[in-house]
Every structure is written in structure tokens, then in C-alpha cells.
Design a protein around this nucleic acid. Structure first.
Length: 103
DNA sequence: GGGGTGACCCAGT
DNA sequence: TACTGGGCCACCC
């Protein structure tokens, strides 16, 4: 699997996240690990930082439910608009989504 | 080719 | 509960 395809896979998975649900970088990495064989939360983070435009990046948060630095306000606004349960500075991890729920 | 950095994660203190 | 250290892998200088 080429790096480009890996990026595509990440973006594709992020697009599949239903509105009102979220996924942690680690969960994305873990889900893609089964497909690509290699993944790490840092990679997903850097990929989202570079190629995150064009996908609902606000549905991807860190394991603590914290929003990406510099985009906290926008992410919180979008999540609130989708009906995602917000909690403090981030989101409620009870809304975490798994790929095999709606596959 | 080598070293530093980052939208991360986990365990220990 | 908050901070620190180690591991992780691709990107940039």
C-alpha cells in the first residue's frame, strides 16, 4: 500500500463517520491497521493536519475527546450543529463510533 | 542520510 | 488530576 493510498484510506474512513458521532485518532489508526498493516495515532494526526481538508475532520478527536488545537471553536460549533454530545472543552467519548457498526 | 517535529497514546509518578 | 517519559512513523530542513 502506497502512502497516497493510505491517506485515501484515512480520509475515506473519516468520511464514513456518521454525523453526531466521533472517532479518536487511535481508533482510526487501529481500524486502518487491519487494512494497511501499518498505522499509528501520530500518522493519522499528521495526515489530518495536511490532508484533513475535504473531510469531516471535526469528527476526529484525541482519546480524551479533546479537539484539535487551533480549530477547537469551529470543531465544537460543527459538532454541536450535528447533535454530538459535547462535554467541557471537547466531546463526550460516549459518542465514539466504530467502523463495524454500520459497515 | 541524519536530526527535529507533530491535529497522538499509554503507563508511571 | 496533571505532568513526564518512551514509543510510534511520516514529513521537512
Amino acid at each position: 500500500m502506497t502512502p497516497d493510498e493510505y491517506v485515501e484510506a484515512v480520509l475515506d474512513l473519516v468520511e464514513r463517520i456518521p454525523p453526531g458521532r466521533v472517532m479518536s485518532y487511535g481508533a482510526v489508526a487501529d481500524a486502518l491497521a487491519e487494512r494497511s498493516g501499518r498505522a499509528s495515532a501520530r500518522l493519522v494526526g499528521s495526515i489530518m493536519a495536511r490532508h484533513g481538508g475535504g473531510v469531516p475532520w471535526h469528527r476526529v478527536v484525541n482519546s480524551a475527546g479533546r479537539l484539535p488545537p487551533g480549530h477547537e471553536v469551529e470543531a465544537r460549533a460543527r459538532l454541536r450543529a450535528e447533535g454530538c454530545p459535547l462535554r467541557g472543552a471537547g466531546v463526550d467519548m460516549a459518542a465514539s463510533w466504530s467502523p463495524d457498526e454500520t459497515m
